[in-house]
Design a protein around this nucleic acid. Sequence first.
RNA 1: UCCCGAGUAGCUCAGGUGGUAGAGCAGGUGACUGUUAAUCACCGGGUCGGGGGUUCGAGUCCCUCCUCGGGAGCCA
Length: 433
Amino acid sequence: MSAPFARISELPAHAGATVTVRGWVTHLRSSGKVAFVVMRDGTGLLQAVLVKNALSPEAWTRFGELTQEACVAVTGQVKVDARAPGGHELGVSDLAIIGPSPLDYPIQPKEHGVDYLLDHRTFWLRTPRQVAIARIRHEVEQGIHDFFYEREFVRVDTPILTAAIGERSGLFSTEYFEEGNAYLAQTGQLYGEAAAAALGKIYTFGPTFRAEKSKTRRHLTEFWMIEPEVAFNDSAANMVLQEEFVSYLVQRCVERRQAELKELERDISKLEKVVPPFPRLDYTDAVALVRSKGSDAKWGDDLGAEDEALIVADYDKPVFVFNYPKAAKAFYMKENPDDPRTVLCDDLLAPEGSGEIIGGSQREDDHDKLLHRIREEQLPEDAYGWYLALRKYGTFPHAGFGLGLERTVAWICGTPHIRECIAFPRMMHRLRP
RNA sequence: UCCCGAGUAGCUCAGGUGGUAGAGCAGGUGACUGUUAAUCACCGGGUCGGGGGUUCGAGUCCCUCCUCGGGAGCCA
């Protein structure tokens, strides 16, 4: 076998030539003396055609030994043929098995339950839909880096092992030498604030961990979060950054990932509408809106999932809800000078039931007010010493937000559950594979 | 933690009022020179999630436990 190697996506450029394609068998069909091998190499699908009379008896015998997911090298002439998926196929002259696959491959070309598929996630990843999601996630990640690089943000990597600091929800803990317990980070934000005073504009990009016993399609125990922090931004500027950021990511996928969105049967016209400005709804107005629609939400409560759905239903873009009551939000958010019952913050709710993809705020930069809030929430004061000290030595107005990567990818892909949007999801009942 | 729902062949599921289990796909054998999750014929395949109870008899009714899914809460 001396033909040059080619990847499936490159085949149109090799029309008429003889090449060798390496990949994995996805379907086998035979009509006695003509057989079809559909294979995948990560760049696309290819139908290889085997005609018994045109092959050596040895090669024809090897076809008989092929199984689903066997890894093969197929040599043949590239032909244009409208009957083949992709418009071209390979007229096979030789066939070699690189890695055989037993008959009990767990994923069949048919419907499976999600739980079963997750048990076999390593193989589920090989299917077209999962490949499309992985490529879109990659596009979003690269888009995040490009967006911030172009705006001269500096990426700062914050610790995953931390002392008790962060938010109130559940913590994963582990032993840490003689220091007692360490906790897996729930956010890099507090460190990001410190870095913003050094670098001006920063963002973090990393995994975060929540030991919440959440069992919903919007929750993972390990997820990836992007947290920009900008010195001298106020809450209004923070929201402008958010809408520019989210719009950029969506439009980038629309422009560069047409094939993947098509594979996912995503309605691209809905994504095309995601351009600034996004609607902005004051919390108080949001409560009035959902009450007019029958909700029994009361001023002072955080908005529930049903309330969020009622709000989003009126728009075809993500919607900001801003300035929530202080008691419903985290201690580090800055008190609203125009209404001290509230804080300068926002949630960004994605359309089509995807829920909250961003939570952001201007940070409390007054040392005494922050200390008061830490005591009010009965947080371990000594653990926040370095964080409070940022307000002592050259305190500065600043704001930032956290974008949930899997929720964003799920929304762009139109997947109902975010567990498909990360290669190996970690959930309450799933630690393997 | 709470509220729903599910657990039957390798996979996806069906099994009115209780009577010792079925289909499709997958697998095996064979046929077929253009298939698109090919088609056709034949074949093998089950501790009905575990335990207990009612009954002559339980996949089916009752109790209990386990596992999983969805939702709530919390959040991204």
